[in-house]
Design a protein around this nucleic acid. Structure first.
Lengths: 254, 254
DNA sequence: ACAAATATCAACGAAAATCCACAAAAGGAC
DNA sequence: GTCCTTTTGTGGATTTTCGTTGATATTTGT
């Protein structure tokens, strides 16, 4: 049996089962444990799987895991609803900017394929990757220095790129929204970027699920601006909405 | 038994089994191991199969594999040698710029993991992806508009980003190099980028396999500059090297 | 927190496959 | 027949793969 034949088989197996063990593979092929490990090592170098103790898992599975384990694994449902509401404000042919983070990923996934034509500007590699499957979308990645934990670009290079661009709409996904601190975030790396997004777009949409409303993060992005559109989910009580309403801030929920 | 008859049979076999071994084929035909290898070699040159250690696999299977791993297999030998030579000119801690294209992918693959510390600037998403597996490398993607066929970014946004950067070394992979036209390329989208690379780096390395030397492409990038370092493979005849040498251009081969 | 069980890693050597240069054989043209 | 070209086989050096071993690291059960 050829070495490459083995590797091909391993990939096929992973597509079905999402994970394999070394011992399982040694039973399947007439080779030693070390050889299987070397196969997995080479496949990992090609980015076709992720090695774990005792075997390997498919990259897709791993990406999922990382996303879930990182933070706010819960409200996938809410995020999808948020995304749906936000997407209803987009029209085919729009030029839009999308922020980074897990909410942004939900939005990108929801958008993908639902519009015929779209120009999307983003600093999130994850968002970019999702939308790059749509050949008719025009994609602009800001570039800059890469922050691998967040799968996004940052730094003055990214900001400068945004500064040269203009969008019809921008979708901001901050960590927190409150009356005292306004719109804020925990990731200082992205603050300048997010501020520039606000300047480079005609219309601003702020997406924040109800758990983020009334909380503060470390870094202030901008004050609450009544001209922005704030999108949240049904979890936000009516009395709280009223308080914001008195300050001219209206939350949209669908 | 005719040679072409053998080859036909090999292709038929591959359509059924997706992979064959050399020993299997020598048992099937009354010829030596070397002859079978030569058959496989010629079939590979025609793009009808992919040779692997111990035998060969069908292109279809292999294409699938490569699609997932984003690694090109054309002229892998030559390109790897080029990459090796180029990599010997890099030191840990360097700031380098890498062009796009398949030669760039080979270089990225070769570099990956061979240096402890590195800052890499590129407009190629493929190069970026390969090197992003190294957590200690600092990566800067130019960003800009995405050209999905080439998996690379282009446009004035990308050029502007490069303009703001500086590298110790840049590695240019043009389509053609000649005395009349200098360094040229077929992809007009990337010409401004490549020109900016030349300006933003202290030291310029031009990588071109010997088949590109003496040919012209559509778009001129820059004239041949004796201060650049030109890297090619052993396929470049000595008398041609002499002609270039008379113009102050020295080719490096390892 | 410890120890046993299990998995990984690194290094070496053997076996197998490949490559290379050259010789032998086979076929074609004259 | 000779001469020439192309194809094939051979032997030896080189490279690649793979299993073994012993040391190290990780997980698991108590």
């Amino acid at each position: 049996m050829l070495a490459s034949e083995r590797k091909l088989k391993i990939i096929e197996l992973l597509e079905q089962k999402h994970s394999v063990t070394v011992s399982e593979l040694t039973a399947l092929f007439p080779v030693s444990l070390e050889t299987v490990r070397r196969d997995l090592e080479s496949l990992e170098k090609d980015g076709l799987l992720k090695r774990v103790y005792g075997g390997a898992v498919s990259v897709k599975k791993m990406k999922n895991y990382e996303r879930l384990s990182s933070r706010s694994s819960e409200n996938i449902k809410e995020k999808q609803l948020l995304a749906q509401t936000a997407a209803s404000l987009i029209h085919s042919g729009d030029i839009i900017m999308i922020d980074g983070g897990t909410t942004a990923i939900s939005l990108a996934e929801y958008i993908s394929g639902r519009f015929k034509e779209l120009t999307v500007i983003t600093h999130s590699l994850a968002v970019f990757r999702i939308l790059s499957r749509q050949p008719d979308y025009k994609l602009i990645l800001t570039g800059g220095q890469f922050f691998s934990d967040e799968e996004a670009f940052f730094g003055h290079l990214a900001v400068d790129t945004l500064r040269q661009l203009h969008a019809d709409k921008c979708f901001l996904m901050p960590s927190a929204v409150s009356l005292h601190m306004g719109i804020s975030d925990f990731m200082e790396e992205f603050i300048p970027l997010q501020r520039q997004m606000l300047l480079s777009a005609d219309k601003v949409f702020v997406l924040a699920d109800s758990s983020k409303i009334g909380t503060d993060a470390m870094m202030k992005i901008a004050p609450l601006d009544p001209s922005y559109t704030y999108i949240t989910d049904a979890g936000l009580p009516e009395d709280i909405r009223d308080i914001y309403r008195q300050h001219g801030i209206e939350f949209v929920t669908e």
